[in-house]
């Protein structure tokens, strides 16, 4: 499937960085103005339907929705150079959740199949405004399953994706085409799966998008891969080092993680990130050191891993604004939620 016109439009917008920045400043500063346009009224209603469909599907699969944490002494450090929000909690340093990943395992140990609809804050690097995919304040549906593999998680991911797309088409089909000029195909699982190694090989040879093995797949190459297919695609088995400490390393294939990303078609980029979780305390501690930190900071989490050993879980997170952007065919996530906030731009409502 070729690049979606909205993705192309974003590309031409960011070509002039200064102008794009000015545009974003206005867009964010006066967001109540466009929030009343018919187009965005529809976007917000579709967003509600997306959340409704997600809940309906997950509940039918036996998942339990659990209240997410908002603050804690530690949060997800695997957030690619973004800074966490720290504040004084009665003399202790606490963080606002950058993702609730550590708490998902906590609740999966209790209820087995759980999900959060969880608010996250990440002070992203300033160059993230040009991606169309990064908000400082966003929501994700974060789910986790006890005693499951990442293959199980991928199955849930593709079923959930197909269900939500079908639901939105059923409820909003006509408006979607009339007002947003968006037509979505009927998707059927399973979606193609590439290991990172195969993706690297195909991109570097057939698709002529070269990058160094072992590094994250650059955005340009993700785009090439996503336009090469008519459905979402999975990239699995990332090499160690590029991911957070919680993605489990395959004991039979050292250096390879049991994890996956799902990419949207048409160049909309990363949809989902998921994995089996590392549950060996010694391995987790070693991996924590890769960010240069003292594992003592994560003491409650490590104690939990020891007490509940083996805490075998798998799960994924799917960003609500990104999903909305894809379904509505929008230029950036700054169009797919009210009162959007992006790196470095203030004041905003």
């Amino acid at each position: 499937m070729p690049l979606h016109p909205a993705v192309r439009e974003l590309e031409s917008m960011v070509a002039d960085k200064e102008r794009y920045r000015k545009f974003l400043q206005e867009w964010l500063r006066y967001s109540w103005r466009w929030a009343r346009d018919d187009k965005y009224k529809l976007v917000f209603r579709i967003q509600a339907s997306i959340l409704h469909a997600i809940r309906e599907k997950l509940d039918s699969m036996g998942f339990v929705e659990v209240l997410p944490p908002i603050i804690g002494p530690v949060t997800d450090p695997g957030i690619r150079g973004a800074k966490q929000v720290t504040f004084d909690f009665y003399g202790h340093e606490y963080k606002v959740m950058s993702s609730a990943i550590l708490y998902k395992q906590y609740m999966a140990a209790s209820l087995e199949k759980i999900y959060f609809v969880s608010p996250n804050i990440r002070l992203e690097p300033l160059d993230s405004i040009y991606t169309g995919r990064h908000l400082v304040e966003f929501f994700q549906v974060d789910l986790e399953m006890y005693n499951a593999t990442y293959h199980d998680a991928m199955k849930v991911a593709e079923e959930l994706f197909c269900y939500v797309v079908k639901y939105v088409k059923d409820v909003h089909g006509r408006e979607l085409e009339d007002k947003l000029k968006r037509s979505l195909p009927d998707f059927k699982p399973p979606f193609p799966r590439y290991t990172y190694k195969d993706a690297h090989k195909i991109l570097c040879t057939e698709l002529n998008c070269k990058f160094e093995y072992g590094t994250e797949i650059p955005w340009e190459c993700e785009k090439v891969l996503s336009t090469h297919h008519d459905t979402p695609v999975f990239v699995t088995d990332y090499p160690r080092g590029a991911r957070g400490f919680y993605d489990r390393e395959d004991p039979t294939r050292p250096g390879i993680l049991l994890d996956f990303d799902m990419l949207y078609p048409e160049g909309f980029g990363e949809a989902i990130s998921g994995a089996e979780r590392e549950y060996e305390p010694a391995k987790v501690i070693q991996r924590m050191r890769e960010t240069g930190e003292d594992p003592n900071k994560y003491r409650w989490y490590l104690e939990m891993l020891k007490e509940l050993y083996p805490l075998r879980t798998a799960g994924f997170g799917i960003g609500v604004e990104r999903f909305t952007r894809y379904i509505c065919g929008l230029r950036g996530v700054w169009e797919s939620r009210p009162y959007p906030k992006v790196a470095g731009i203030a004041p905003t409502p």
Partner: peptide, 11 residues
């Protein structure tokens, strides 16, 4: 750890 740290930093 060192290898992982350099990879993390590059990402």
């Amino acid at each position: 750890i060192l290898r992982g740290m350099i990879r993390n930093m590059r990402t």
